[in-house]
Write a protein that binds this DNA or RNA. Structure first.
Length: 469
RNA sequence: GGCGACGUAGCCAAGUGGUAAGGCAGAGGUCUGCAAAACCUCCAUCACGGGUUCGAAUCCCGUCGUCGCCUCCA
């Protein structure tokens, strides 16, 4: 079966066909860098990281562009509050994001354009829109003339008329129509400004994405992604601008992830956001949990659906990670042929098929992880049956390969192991002597006290191993 | 009010016409001095009400409920 993707534009799952053979042009909206990122931002990045990895697994060469909105009202506001230069403030959060990319094991995008480094292209694009009658300058600002775009609203599936009747659009006397949106904002005193034919100012939010896409990927792209909170107005406006300027279709597939939601202590479930104050920063999360736990959380729910974050989902995914890691424990036996080996290999092949079928079906993470757990059981069962040697190693390598397609690292927490390892080994040896002498109370005391320090001992016929809890 | 998504066991969740994957939690068992881990077994008729069909969780209509967007937002 071939890859199928849900397209927000059409509202249905469609076969995936690229503009050019074996090549995918993908643009994903990145963060506005005015504040520290939280795990909701991470979720979106993880979703598209997984999509990209799977496309590459399927043989596509992926051009993956992610932007930084590094000049906008919020950045300016925040900089003013802190008495800092807005561009320096943005620069700091961009550096922080690049660190998150590493910490979360995200594949770096192939390009990271910014609004401030795309200024010439933005100004040129606005000029084109004005020439074609799709935009107009007004008192230092430039607005997009929404009524010149016949199919405005097609992405968010709403009509211009229904939006006009909505009361929530603030009227602005400079606009010809309340729905018109800013392409260029004239600068007030003390605001960062770039020279343009319409005076000093800065780009509106939406235009930068269109300009960056044209610059980095061309006038047409395969996949445009982002959070589903961007569908309207951001992506709707991007389509309007882009297609009005180029007179051809802009992005083939619009892919949107659902929002990360937070369950409050009162049980209320709401979107995680800065403004509500119900967020967990990426750094805070990673201080307590491996990045794989967050990735498993994201994989454990369909990417388009909202994902509720609470203590329960956290604990559940920590256990999932432990279980996946159990498949990587070394073989104890040496059986390298026979029915047990054949059964293992057959089970792996079947699970791999299930994995691909699930991922081909609009990147079905829960289905794909289920296939992973089938591999885990097959591998552990085979180990218990004495399978070992090259066939066992090969199967584990396959398992690692597949988990790697999802971006899972499955690395044992090694922090401090070099320093404390010898001491723990010493205690394990002492405990072994105590057990040999039937001094079980003392032996258990060693184990319990280590457990209190976060070190789990596990006995097996081959000896005792330890791991961090 | 408008638009959209969704409602499967205690929880997360797969399945989109032929009698319910997987994970967590729980129960029993194997192993162990005891644990832990691993392995085995058990644990749901799919929000509700109609309809279409030989047959529906899966299609249609309605009701209730949840979330998102309509303003900055991943």
């Amino acid at each position: 079966m071939a890859l199928q993707i849900f397209n927000t534009l059409t509202g249905v799952v469609e076969p995936f066909e690229t503009l050019e053979p074996e090549r995918v042009k993908m643009y994903v909206c990145g963060p506005t860098v005015y504040n520290t990122a939280h795990i909701g931002h991470a979720m979106s990045a993880l979703v598209f990281d997984i999509i990209r990895r799977y496309l590459e697994y399927r043989g596509y060469s992926v051009q993956h562009v992610q932007n930084f909105t590094d000049v906008d009202d919020k950045i300016i506001q925040r900089a003013n509050e802190e008495g800092r230069d807005p561009l320096a403030l943005a620069e700091g959060y961009i550096a922080e994001w690049h660190r998150h990319v590493q910490d979360l094991n995200l594949l770096p995008a192939t390009a990271y354009p910014r609004a401030t480094t795309t200024m010439n292209e933005i100004i040129a694009l606005i000029g084109t829109l004005i020439e074609r009658g799709h935009a107009y300058a007004a008192d230092g600002d430039v607005y997009f003339r929404v009524r010149t775009d016949a199919d405005y609203g097609k992405l968010s599936h709403r009509s211009v008329d229904s939006m006009r009747s909505g009361a929530r659009i603030a009227p602005d006397e400079r606009k010809e129509d309340p729905l018109d949106f800013a392409l260029w904002k004239g600068a007030k005193p003390d605001e960062p400004a770039w020279e343009s034919p319409w005076g000093g100012g800065r780009p509106g939010w939406h235009i930068e994405c269109s300009a960056m896409i044209f610059k980095e990927l061309g006038q047409r792209i395969d996949i445009h992604g982002g959070g589903n909170d961007l569908i309207f107005p951001h992506h709707e406006n991007e389509i309007a601008q882009s297609e009005s300027a180029t007179e051809q279709s802009f992005a083939r597939y619009w892919v949107h992830n659902g929002m990360l939601q937070m369950r409050s202590s009162a049980g209320v479930i709401e979107k995680m956001s800065k403004s509500l104050g119900n967020f967990v920063t990426i750094d805070d999360f990673l201080a307590e949990h491996p990045a794989d736990v967050l990735r498993l959380m994201v994989l454990g729910s369909p990417y388009r659906a909202p994902l509720v974050y609470d203590a329960g989902t956290l604990a559940e995914n920590e256990r999932k990670l432990e279980r996946l890691m159990s498949a990587l424990r070394p073989a104890a036996g040496t059986t390298a042929s026979g029915p047990a080996v054949e059964g293992l290999e057959a089970a792996l092949r079947q699970a791999r098929d299930s994995f691909e079928t699930a991922m081909d079906n609009d990147f079905n993470g829960p289905g794909a992880t289920a296939a992973l757990f089938e591999m885990v059981r097959a591998i552990n069962t085979a180990r218990d049956a004495g399978v070992g040697g090259p066939p066992f190693d090969a199967v584990q390598a396959t398992f690692r390969n597949i988990t790697g397609v999802l971006g899972l690292q499955l690395e044992a927490q090694a922090a401090g192991a070099e320093e404390v390892g010898p001491f723990i080994e010493l205690l394990i040896k002492t405990r072994a002597d105590l057990r040999k002498a039937k001094q079980f109370a003392l032996a258990d005391q060693v184990r319990n006290e280590l457990a209190a320090l976060g070190v789990i001992l596990e006995d097996s016929p081959q000896g005792t191993t330890w791991r961090w809890k």
